[in-house]
Design a protein around this nucleic acid. Structure first.
Length: 429
RNA sequence: GCCCAGGUAGUGUAGUGGCCCAUCAUGUCGGCCUGUCACGCCGACGACUCGGAUUCGAAUUCCGACCUGGGCGCCA
């Protein structure tokens, strides 16, 4: 019976393990193999003079990263990793790995991101890389858990859509039988339709597609969005949910991922809620001071400005009260000052993580806003219809899961936070 | 989309006109080695993205192509 390597302790008498050959150290009469599985690494020691003939035959043909099965007695040895080692009675090569390897799993020699992504299956064998995806899994689990505990319905909405409804970013066109279709950039409109559907609290964690030709360390053409929408809520209500979600994710990782964090070398600090809130106008002032640029109301906060504000804030923070003209048509303007709206961005000092808003729920006002943005109402009928038959007030947001993980783990490149990134140039693997 | 930088053994690098039939590390293969843990030591193997041009001479300069990284815009 195979046991996970982490369950083999110095007290274990006999164990059978399977895994990959991590390292080989051949001292002549004595050979050490490090065998790695999902759970850890163990040393397998062979004394040439004492080992069974079958074992000696096997080890001659072994290569790094081959898949092996080892069974034998376990001894407590201070000098070995984890304080124990196996002396094999059985040593079987289940599947031999070719050599040379496309990259060094032991990380003696670094590999460039491009090389790593080309051989991602090998790259994720590296304990450090593996830890990132263990943590990613934990983050998404914690987020799911939060939503379920708070009465949200888990929805999935179409990724193939008929028209470019949201404006703004470019969409990927695809062939859909005899029709033209697109990959959806956001579940936004569908979340809103489900507010008209009476679901009240929904969330979706799924892919979004953006056909922008950007080439940066913080953009992907296929990303994972954590999305939510809540009826009878305003922007303040959903900002509270958003900061709770971020804190819950950090909390869970801090509580359950010690080992993975240690492998990455991160001393995780859980952000404290409530996060500070500054208005767009205040952000402009801080940015102007920090960069020397003269920013005016209505200007977008560029990367340089965003970083300057991030440096000043030093923690997660919200930017609220955005100019209506630079936010999407569905953001609700304030009644007393329609030049600003109930939209917000959640910022990490390094970059934007999320944006959201209270939405316009009145049909005629929405049509006005769509037209004010210079968009045609034509393709919007399927979206506008629900607003005529009892649409409740509602608010929501979408957060980039990769950005959350990237900033949490201080990863240099967002591609490190996805298994198989899709960017301007990469379509395989 | 605009701008900048870069492509050298399987991997990561040095080399900016002759000192380079190319450096170092890791790897692979062979040899020695009974407690390694980046094992050590000896030996070998393995590379200048492609095409054109300049030059007595090009990894090195120029042009084009292809590929890659990054910045900006925009965004999550």
């Amino acid at each position: 019976m195979r046991v996970p390597i982490c369950e083999v302790t110095p007290e274990t008498e006999y164990a059978e393990i399977t895994g990959w050959i991590h390292e080989i150290r051949d001292l002549g009469g004595l050979t050490f193999f490090l065998v790695r599985d999902r759970t850890g690494i163990i040393q397998v020691t062979i004394v040439r003079k004492k080992a069974p003939e079958g074992v000696l035959t096997t080890i001659r043909e072994i290569s790094r990263e081959s898949v092996v099965r080892v069974a034998g007695t376990v001894k407590a040895i201070d000098k070995a990793v984890g304080g124990r080692e196996i002396t094999p009675e059985v040593f079987e090569v289940i599947n031999r790995a070719e050599s040379p390897l496309p990259l060094d799993v032991v990380e003696k020699v670094p590999a460039e991101l491009d090389t790593r992504l080309d051989a991602r299956f090998l790259d994720v064998r590296r304990p450090r890389v593996n830890a990132v995806f263990q943590i990613r899994s934990t983050v998404l689990d914690a987020v799911h858990d939060y939503f379920f505990r708070n009465g949200f319905i888990n929805i999935t909405t179409p990724k193939i859509v008929a028209a470019a409804t949201e404006g703004g970013t470019e969409l990927f066109p695809i062939a859909y039988f005899e029709k033209e279709a697109f990959l959806n950039q956001s579940p936004q409109l569908y979340k809103q339709m489900l507010m008209a559907g009476g679901f009240e609290k929904v969330f979706e964690i799924g892919p979004i597609f953006r056909a922008e030709e950007h080439n940066t360390v913080r953009h992907l053409n296929e990303a994972t969005s954590i999305d939510t929408e809540v009826s009878f809520a305003d922007h303040n209500d959903v900002m509270k949910i958003l900061e709770d979600v971020v804190v819950v994710a950090y909390d869970r990782v801090a509580a359950t991922c010690d080992e993975h964090l240690a492998r990455i070398g991160i001393d995780l600090e859980v952000p404290k809620s409530p996060f500070p809130r500054i208005t767009y106008t205040e952000a402009l002032e801080i940015a102007s001071r920090g960069t020397g640029e003269d920013l005016a109301f209505g200007d977008d906060l560029g990367t340089v400005a965003e970083k300057a504000v991030g440096r000043e804030m030093g923690v997660h923070y919200f930017i609220v009260d955005w100019p209506t003209e630079i936010k999407p048509y569905y953001a609700m303007p304030y009644d007393d000052d329609p030049t600003i709206c109930r939209a917000f961005d959640l910022m990490h000092p390094r970059m934007e993580l999320s944006s959201g808003a209270q939405r316009i729920h009145r049909h005629d006002q929405l049509v006005d806003q769509i037209q004010a943005k210079g968009l045609g109402v034509d393709g919007f009928e399927f979206y506008l219809k629900p607003f005529r038959y009892g649409m409740p007030p509602h608010a929501g947001w979408g957060m980039g899961a990769e950005r959350l993980i990237m900033t949490m783990l201080d990863l240099a490149n967002i591609r490190d936070a996805v298994l198989f990134p899709r960017d301007r140039h990469r379509l395989t693997p």
